[in-house]
Design a protein around this nucleic acid. Structure first.
Lengths: 200, 200, 200, 200
DNA sequence: CATGAATGAGCCTTCATTCAT
DNA sequence: AATGAATGAAGGCTCATTCAT
């Protein structure tokens, strides 16, 4: 990259990115409705009206945050999964990456978990599609496991992801790390799955 | 109590109850911020201003809904647990009662799961206290289990309750019943706990 | 009417009427888009938000002004027409009443002439219907004339009403009175109509 | 003029002309206030800010459109009048040219009829002057008529022009052509004027 | 008990305009 | 000549809340 390009090109994108980051932070911490355009613009050092040069509406801003969130968490999860040898290791790596991203590394990703699509009626379809696209990964990861009782798949996936996502409610940085939590949860999950239920 | 009071008191209580029920329904289905005082008053057949005769603020209304929600779900859970013989059966019965109440039987209880305390800053402490009081039951239920590895307790409780609560996000009346979900989840949970982890 | 009723009943209606009057005045003098809710509320001595207790939107306010305008001008025109003996006298009386109402007596009526339905997209259909309903009177008044050449009717009606309505653009209180203008215009109109065109 | 200027000047003029044409079209069809600088710049393929290189303000744009409108309609009317032999034919030709230009041939001219000077406070004086200058033609055309009753002149001119201008409100391309309307109206006008009023 | 009426703060958004580049 | 980016004032509207009656 020439020095000129380094100085000029990113300018526009920078402001947009700043706004997006501010929006992600606010949406993740306060929720969608409790966040005002003034908050976001203020965080990025501009006036409310100026934000509309970069985004058409608050809904569109949420959509953009969702998109970035999916991009990031999906990239982390895919990278982590790709580095693992067998299906179980792959799932564990994916879950760890998922939870680390949500809890620690990305306001964007946290928004996907925290803000419900219904909060932005006009773009809710697209938000749902983004969520679904992302979660498809876990459908496939669970499908790859060799399970004694394959019909457990759906329920167990919902249990695992639900437990991970809910941790956002009780998680405190002072306790276990996100990756420790994810690892624990996945191991319990494995124990529950690997052998058929005993007769009681 | 004079006769007059006998006639009047329950009337007043009725209106309050109607408002509370309307608030619970709205908060459960739309969330706290998306619900207006107008919605709630309208559902109870009165005007917004009239609501303030019964409740001091929207926050107070939420607090009252939370209180009623805890009262109901705790009653259901306690009753279910009391009818079971051993610790594992007790936990399963409690979880089933918990999920049935949240998903099917009580808007009040659903509010506890759906509406975050931070949505009502001024009463958030009390909302948190109510949540904690209720969840204490599960701490005790899990403590009663005879586990090979007692240090799993906290994590496993968080996993189980988180998975149950998150089901509110994906639950559809057309699929498995709440009690079926709860039973399944608890059984997986049991399988994961009863046997010590193998060496891998 | 009892004194109590005199004091209490009209209260609500009074404020609504004040707002309507203020809106009519502003719309008539500044046009629809140039008038702000703040202007109108301010004229009625209240805050912008308070207006919405009485009217659901700015469009609805315009609709209400139109309705009142049609009611008033129609009443004036009908009364005037009813007092005249023959068709020509009836038309002249109606035109005089029309123009007097528009120019002198009613901001409401002036709004019908000045504000185009397209200015309020969401209610434009109803605005057009109101205009049409009113103008139907003139269709009938012209139909009642005994004309040598009946096919002139439509064009001549459009000419007469157009000329009257356009006077709003050049009319100044210092010059001819509205009724003088209307009388003059109607007489020219009559002269143009009563005998078939001569060969030139 | 240097060759460079010869090449450049018209380019600049082109862009200005494009903007003017876009503004005229928008103002004629949507009105002044409903048209945004964005609309106009967009129609000319540029961004809002760029427009300000060519025009100092939205008001100035309107003024320029008015000027061009007067230039065009005046040219049409003058040419038409010049081709007619006697005063009545001259008036009829002028009216036909006026209405054709307004309804069919020029967005610029339509703006003069549709957009009220008060819509642009800061230039309203000049807008009024332009209107007056143009209408002077009709004062003269009517003055040239030999009338039994000369005092009718002003009123009849206002009636005729008003009726013509108002046709913009009800005119639909599917019905009579503008020139047919203008011819009809002028003939009625002539009939009304040529004979003294009878005693009634 | 309830209502009618209003408040006031704040919300999202629009838009003419500016200006460095 | 034109753009990108921002401004700032204003606009329509919402909503929890108040209070005299």
């Amino acid at each position: 990259m020439t020095e000129q390009a380094a100085l000029r090109a990113p300018r526009q994108d920078n402001r947009r990115r700043q706004l997006l980051a501010a929006a992600a932070r606010r949406f993740a911490h306060q929720g969608f409705r409790a966040t005002t355009i003034r908050d976001i613009a203020g965080d990025a050092g501009m006036l409310p009206g100026s934000l509309y040069y970069h985004f058409a509406s608050k809904n569109d801003l949420l959509l953009a945050v969702y998109e970035e969130g999916v991009r990031r968490i999906a990239a982390n999860v895919d990278r982590a999964a790709a580095g693992a040898a067998d299906p179980w290791a792959r799932l564990e790596a994916a879950c760890t990456a998922h939870l680390e991203t949500v809890l620690d590394r990305s306001d964007y990703a946290q928004v996907i978990v925290r803000v419900l699509p219904q909060d932005a009626q006009k773009v809710s379809d697209r938000l749902i599609a983004l969520r679904d696209e992302y979660e498809g990964r876990f459908v496939r990861l669970v499908d790859d496991l060799a399970l004694p009782n394959p019909s457990d798949r759906r329920n167990l996936r919902l249990l695992l992801l639900g437990a991970l996502n809910w941790s956002q409610v009780w998680y405190r940085p002072a306790g276990d790390t996100p990756s420790a939590i994810a690892r624990q949860f996945t191991r319990y999950f494995r124990r529950a799955l690997e052998r058929p239920e005993e007769v009681r």
